[in-house]
């Protein structure tokens, strides 16, 4: 286990080196956040009908989306992609580690590093100047942090699955684009999930993608009250475990083919 933790730490340090990228990302997220904020403000002003989520909850939701965008499984792990393309992935087997967890933590570490670098300053800015409020209670805050950790694990499981799919498709562009799109739309990062039509709600509640953003963000603003939060977090955990098992199974089959066929 400590090997994975060490890998995680090393990646985190590495990610911290890319300050320029983090700064540019911060600027972009801020810009889009302000635009989206204006759109939703106009929307709330123009409509007198009661909305499924309050204006303040929407503002919180929007800023958290902007701050934590990188929780989505957006990009493939470049190094692993390269290894699979050149066939060098076989050499990964020359290390006495479980390859799935190795890759899981590797992508997790990179993602968390990038995430933390962008999230903290943007959260602070939004909270100071742009209308983001603190959670309504300590219970909400605690449940949010727990749910956020689960969202992060879920994102890692999805990203690792995407990486593993490279063993079959080599370039991986197709699957990663598709998964990206699904995650983007169904996690609530474009439009908060409560605004989707009633008939879609059941499907959205079933899919794993809401667990990436919608669940923790609604817990944050109290839209999901703390006493209901555990059920929502359970949903995240079940999906995370399921995706990890699926990933391990697919990786096992991919490796069998690799070790038999020679890549």
């Amino acid at each position: 286990m400590s090997a994975y933790v060490a890998l995680f730490k090393a990646r985190l340090q590495m990610g911290l080196q890319y300050r320029a990228a983090a700064l540019a990302g911060l600027g972009t997220q801020l810009f889009w956040g302000i635009i989206r904020l204006m759109i939703f403000e106009a929307f709330f002003r123009s409509s007198a009908a009661p909305q499924p989520i309050t204006y303040q909850q929407t503002v919180d939701y929007l800023w958290l989306t902007q701050a934590l965008l990188l929780i989505l499984p957006m990009r493939l792990e470049g190094e692993i992609q390269q290894m699979i393309r050149t066939g060098a992935v076989a050499y990964e087997l020359a290390r006495p580690t479980d390859l799935y967890w190795f890759w899981f933590f590797r992508s997790g570490a990179g993602r968390t590093a990038a995430l933390a670098l962008r999230a903290a300053p943007l959260y602070l800015l939004a909270w100071l100047f742009l209308g983001l409020k603190a959670p309504p209670s300590w219970a909400s805050a605690g449940a949010f942090l727990l749910s956020l950790a689960c969202a992060s694990a879920l994102g890692c499981a999805l990203a690792t699955l995407m990486t593993i799919s490279l063993l079959w498709t080599v370039s991986g562009e197709g699957i990663s684009r598709l998964l990206n799109l699904l995650a983007y739309v169904f996690s609530g990062s474009v439009v908060p999930l409560p605004f989707y039509p009633a008939w879609a709600q059941r499907a959205l509640a079933f899919l794993p993608f809401g667990g990436l953003m919608d669940t923790p963000f609604r817990i944050y603003s109290g839209h999901i009250p703390p006493e209901e939060a555990l059920g929502a977090i359970g949903h995240q955990i079940v999906w995370t475990v399921a995706l990890i098992l699926l990933g391990r199974w697919i990786l096992g089959r991919g490796l069998r083919r690799l070790t038999v066929q020679g890549g």
Binding site: A3, A6, M14, Q17
Partner: peptide
């Protein structure tokens, strides 16, 4: 991307 010494440390863990 890691300094050599850190790669070594990682291998120690692995």
């Amino acid at each position: 991307d890691l300094p050599v010494i850190e790669s070594f440390d990682l291998l120690r863990e692995i």
